[in-house]
């Protein structure tokens, strides 16, 4: 653990420094342009400090984004439409709903595939094909169509998250349900175990590590689904809506703060699944 802190810290610091360098380089032409129009000369120090405080920079400096995040989280009421917490919550709720639905669907499909030869042969190729279709491209239509038949709000976004997140779970769980060794299956056979007993006492427990590994992928991808699902809804609420309205009005600082919030949310969700997974496998006596 300790020998990793220094390298990771160095890389993060390098990213930070590079960010500042790029801020200066990308924002400088605008400042030079302004100075030329005002017929003034800028010293290098002035130029650099000016690039850090622009209102609509091409690339905002890290501290500008940090200030924006601070102002929109701590200093605004949570119920306010300008609060980042409120938008994050909107996105989080549809992510979690879609993630839950996708996980259940994935597990059900895997159960069907493992227990039926026909489903295995006919469904599996289509499950793989379904993921080569860029669902995120279809997202706006799913939302508009569901809106037209009176379903709006949380559910349409959750459907997109579900479509994205069921795949890793289904594939991982098919692998997991098939992970018991032949010896274990033979043992169950000598016990005269029924199919459901084999499933609940052997296949299900054996697949738990696979479940959590694929759930980590699924939760990250369902956040992406929720964000993209918010793009066509007219930009009312959610992190995706913040991105869209930010890009309409050229508010780069707003875009970056939404991006950072989304990244923190993704890291948090993956970490939570990881922690839950670890404690569950530990309680089951499978911890390495």
């Amino acid at each position: 653990m300790h020998d990793r802190v220094i390298p990771i810290g160095t890389v993060l610091l390098a990213i930070f420094v590079l960010w500042y360098v790029f801020t200066v380089v990308l924002n400088a032409p605008f400042e030079r342009d302004q100075a030329a129009r005002a017929d003034t000369e800028l010293s290098t120090i002035e130029l650099i400090s000016n690039t850090m405080v622009q209102k609509r920079p091409i690339l905002p400096a890290p501290h500008q984004v940090a200030v924006e995040i601070w102002e929109t989280t701590v200093e605004k009421k949570i119920t306010s439409k300008r609060s980042l917490v409120y938008h994050t919550w909107v996105t989080l709720s549809s992510t979690l709903l879609g993630f839950a639905m996708g996980t259940v669907l994935g597990i059900l499909l895997a159960v069907g595939i493992v227990h039926s030869r026909v489903l295995d042969k006919s469904l599996m190729p289509w499950i793989i094909t379904s993921q080569t279709i860029p669902i995120l491209a279809i997202a706006p239509m799913v939302i508009v169509v569901l809106n037209a038949i009176g379903i709006s709000g949380l559910l349409p976004k959750a459907v997109i998250s579900m479509y994205l997140s069921f795949f890793p779970v289904a594939v991982g769980m098919v692998k997991g349900f098939r992970s018991p060794e032949v010896m274990h299956l033979d043992l169950m056979h000598t016990y005269n175990a029924s199919r459901s007993q084999v499933f609940w006492k052997l296949r299900w427990p054996a697949s738990v590590p696979f479940l959590f590994t694929s759930m980590k992928v699924a939760v990250a991808i369902s956040l992406v689904g929720a964000i993209v699902g918010e793009l066509p809804t007219g930009a009312s609420a959610g992190l995706g809506a913040r991105l869209l309205s930010g890009s309409y009005y050229g508010q780069t600082i707003q875009i970056w703060s939404a991006l950072i919030a989304a990244s923190l949310l993704a890291a948090f969700l993956v970490m939570m699944v990881d922690i839950i997974g670890r404690s569950v496998t530990k309680r089951m006596g499978m911890a390495a």
Binding site: P7, T10, I15, V217, A220, L244, T252, A267
Partner: peptide
């Protein structure tokens, strides 16, 4: 040691959000 954990994290982030930028 340093870049790989960061790369793993970034691979899980919603990078599509970079599109407007």
């Amino acid at each position: 040691k340093g870049l790989l954990p960061v790369g793993n994290l970034v691979a899980a982030l919603p990078i599509v959000g970079m599109a407007p930028i």
